[in-house]
Deep mutational scan, measured.
Amino acid sequence: KELVLVLYDYQEKSPREVTVKKGDILTLLNSTNKDWWKVEVDDSQGFIPAAYLKKL
């Protein structure tokens, strides 16, 4: 599985998104959309702007 590093805090703005903190390491589930990547946070899944993430 691929991991990503969160570069900036992000507060979810819709139920399909997730809240993350700078420095979090998350599992990347889908990066086919260049603007929004799907990640797994704890036991939930959701989208975060790709610009907030860096592949490890």
Rank of each mutant, 00 (worst) to 15 (best):
K1Q: 11
K1P: 12
K1I: 12
K1S: 09
K1M: 11
K1A: 10
K1V: 12
E2P: 10
E2N: 11
E2R: 12
E2H: 11
E2K: 10
L3M: 11
L3P: 02
L3N: 04
L3V: 07
L3K: 12
L3R: 09
V4D: 01
V4Q: 00
V4N: 00
V4Y: 05
V4S: 01
V4I: 04
L5T: 04
L5E: 10
V6L: 02
V6A: 06
V6Q: 00
V6D: 00
V6C: 07
V6N: 00
V6P: 00
V6R: 00
V6K: 00
V6M: 02
V6F: 01
L7V: 07
L7Y: 02
L7R: 04
L7D: 00
Y8K: 14
Y8L: 10
Y8P: 00
Y8V: 10
Y8R: 14
Y8N: 09
Y8G: 06
Y8H: 13
D9W: 04
D9Y: 05
D9H: 05
D9K: 02
D9A: 06
D9P: 05
D9I: 04
D9E: 05
D9G: 05
Y10H: 03
Y10K: 01
Y10S: 01
Y10L: 01
Y10F: 06
Y10V: 01
Y10G: 01
Q11E: 13
Q11S: 11
Q11T: 14
E12N: 12
E12Y: 11
E12H: 13
E12T: 14
K13Y: 08
K13M: 12
K13D: 07
K13F: 09
K13V: 08
K13S: 10
K13N: 09
K13R: 13
K13T: 12
K13C: 11
S14W: 11
S14A: 09
S14Y: 10
P15G: 11
P15K: 10
P15L: 08
P15E: 12
P15C: 09
P15Y: 08
P15R: 07
R16A: 12
R16M: 13
R16I: 12
R16Q: 12
R16P: 06
R16C: 15
R16G: 15
E17V: 06
E17G: 15
E17Q: 12
E17D: 06
E17C: 08
V18Y: 07
V18D: 01
V18E: 02
V18A: 06
V18P: 02
V18L: 15
V18W: 14
T19K: 08
T19R: 08
T19Q: 06
T19L: 05
T19D: 05
T19C: 08
V20C: 08
V20D: 00
V20R: 01
V20M: 02
V20E: 01
V20G: 03
V20P: 00
K21V: 07
K21A: 08
K21W: 09
K21T: 08
K22R: 12
K22F: 05
K22G: 05
K22P: 03
K22C: 07
G23S: 03
G23Q: 01
G23F: 03
G23M: 03
G23Y: 04
G23T: 01
G23K: 01
G23H: 04
D24M: 15
D24W: 15
D24E: 11
D24K: 06
D24R: 09
I25Q: 03
I25T: 05
I25Y: 04
I25K: 05
L26I: 12
L26R: 01
L26E: 01
L26T: 01
L26G: 08
L26M: 04
T27I: 15
T27P: 10
T27W: 12
T27Q: 09
L28A: 02
L28D: 00
L28N: 00
L28Y: 01
L28E: 01
L28S: 01
L29A: 03
L29D: 00
L29C: 05
L29T: 05
L29V: 11
N30W: 06
N30R: 05
N30D: 15
N30K: 06
N30I: 06
N30L: 08
N30C: 13
S31N: 08
S31L: 04
S31T: 08
S31A: 12
S31V: 07
S31C: 14
S31H: 08
S31K: 06
S31R: 06
T32Y: 09
T32E: 14
T32P: 04
T32N: 12
T32H: 10
T32R: 10
T32D: 14
N33I: 05
N33A: 07
N33M: 08
N33V: 04
N33E: 09
N33W: 06
N33P: 04
N33C: 10
N33G: 08
N33F: 07
K34V: 09
K34N: 10
K34Q: 11
K34H: 10
K34T: 11
D35I: 14
D35R: 13
D35E: 11
D35W: 15
W36P: 00
W36S: 03
W36K: 04
W36F: 08
W36E: 04
W37T: 00
W37C: 03
W37M: 02
W37F: 04
W37P: 00
K38T: 08
K38E: 15
K38F: 15
K38I: 15
K38H: 11
K38S: 09
V39Y: 01
V39T: 00
V39E: 01
V39L: 03
V39W: 01
V39F: 02
V39N: 00
E40W: 08
E40V: 10
E40A: 13
E40L: 12
E40D: 06
E40S: 10
E40G: 09
E40N: 05
E40I: 10
E40K: 12
V41N: 12
V41S: 13
V41L: 12
V41Y: 09
D42Q: 13
D42A: 14
D42C: 13
D42M: 12
D42N: 14
D43G: 15
D43S: 13
D43Y: 09
D43A: 11
D43Q: 13
D43I: 07
S44P: 00
S44T: 14
S44A: 14
S44W: 15
S44K: 15
Q45V: 14
Q45A: 12
Q45I: 14
Q45C: 14
Q45S: 13
Q45M: 10
Q45G: 06
Q45T: 13
G46P: 09
G46T: 13
G46L: 15
G46D: 03
G46Q: 09
G46Y: 15
G46W: 14
G46R: 10
F47V: 06
F47P: 03
F47H: 05
F47W: 15
F47D: 04
F47K: 02
F47C: 14
I48S: 02
I48P: 02
I48L: 13
I48M: 13
P49K: 04
P49Q: 04
P49M: 05
P49S: 03
P49I: 04
P49V: 04
A50M: 05
A50D: 02
A50P: 07
A50E: 04
A50S: 14
A50R: 11
A51T: 13
A51L: 11
A51P: 08
A51K: 14
A51V: 12
A51I: 13
A51W: 12
Y52D: 02
Y52F: 12
Y52Q: 03
Y52S: 05
Y52I: 15
Y52M: 07
Y52A: 10
Y52V: 12
Y52R: 03
Y52W: 06
L53T: 04
L53P: 02
L53M: 04
L53R: 00
L53A: 09
L53K: 01
L53D: 03
K54R: 12
K54W: 10
K54I: 13
K54S: 09
K54P: 02
K55M: 08
K55V: 11
K55Q: 07
K55Y: 08
K55S: 06
K55G: 04
K55T: 06
K55C: 10
K55D: 04
K55A: 06
K55I: 12
L56F: 09
L56P: 02
L56Q: 05
L56G: 02
L56C: 13
L56K: 03
L56N: 02
